[in-house]
Nucleic acid binder design. Structure first.
Lengths: 187, 187
DNA sequence: GTCTATACGAAGATAGAC
DNA sequence: GTCTATCTTCGTATAGAC
């Protein structure tokens, strides 16, 4: 199906160049479909396309998280960091997170921004729920989940700027240790 | 001087809309100078202007950090988070960090990207040096410094998406506690 | 040296031919 | 239902009048 191809292509361009530099023209060309088709599939225009690209990215990450978190919070967090490491390594530090890309460009894309907020919230909830299941209090679990996502996202940006994996590794090391200590204390 | 006005205006637009949506036209208009003047002051075009905007932002933050870190790492970190909180609160969650904005848009702006990497590195070094002065080992200090910056930057993005200060507060609470425990253990 | 006017390309979006 | 051609606007950048 070409519709999914278009959304996936848009997500890929967005995580590299950001939302504004992702033109519907080029997304269509990359998917091998004419420009008009894009507006047939996405009558809401760029806002709708970007929102769907964000939701696709959210689901991919959420599915991975759900799977790995079954083995415990530490495994889920490790997989989360491994995912970003692969994105960076596989693109020579040229790609990041499309969800973040949407959130840093205040523009006329309300649907996409809403999807971005929901993605962050969904991931946070998954992580927090897993932590809570392992004895961390609800409030603390929510705080830790937010810290995990914020620091990973921020580290990915720093890695891109510095063209080095070091920031992500540093952050992962710190948070792994913090997580271990926290869970050990409550078990 | 209108040159500084142009750079400051560019930085403000960049932290709101991102680099690509920041047009030289509008920057010039906002500064009250004609379009041609901008290219007179910045013959390197948009790349040069963006790079100077990033360096200006770097210096503002670095100056604040240098001042507050004299009272200790905890005070410096608190000021760092307070700064971002003010940016978010003062713009209804519509502005973030221009340094981050540049790093997430892979485009033809090598100078600006280099300035972005240097900004992150400069802030990290300041924080790491302060931590090292208070008994934290060099390696650990560098890791913690990276974590502090990455999580603050990431939290700011989450706050923008969710139009809420909660992510930044959550991250600040976690890191304040972690910092206290780390410094107490080594003193 | 400042600024007006413009060249040139690409963006989002749509109308209408097949 | 698919796609081509086009409208309109805006981007970077520059040439040349004051």
């Amino acid at each position: 199906m070409s519709r999914q191809q278009i959304v996936a292509g848009a997500a890929d361009m967005m995580r590299r160049r950001g939302l504004n530099a992702t033109s519907i023209r080029e997304v269509a060309k990359h998917a091998g479909t004419p420009l008009g088709s894009t507006y047939h599939y996405f009558p809401g225009g760029k806002d709708q396309l970007a929102a769907e690209a964000v939701r696709l990215s959210e689901e991919i990450v959420a599915t991975l998280l759900a799977e790995k978190l079954r083995q415990g919070p530490a495994e889920g967090v490790a997989a989360f960091f491994a995912l970003w490491r692969e994105v960076l390594a596989g693109t020579e530090f040229k790609a990041g997170c499309p969800v973040l890309a949407v959130a840093v460009e205040e523009a006329d894309h309300p649907e996409a921004l809403k999807a971005s907020a929901e993605a962050f919230r969904a991931w946070s909830k998954q992580l927090a729920a897993s932590l809570a299941e392992h004895g961390v209090g609800a409030r603390r679990a929510a705080q830790l989940a937010t810290l995990l996502i914020a620091s990973a996202e921020g580290a990915v940006v720093m890695c891109r700027a510095q063209r080095s994996i070091q920031p992500l590794d540093d952050v992962a090391a710190e948070l792994t240790a913090l997580l271990e200590a926290t869970i050990a204390a409550r078990t």
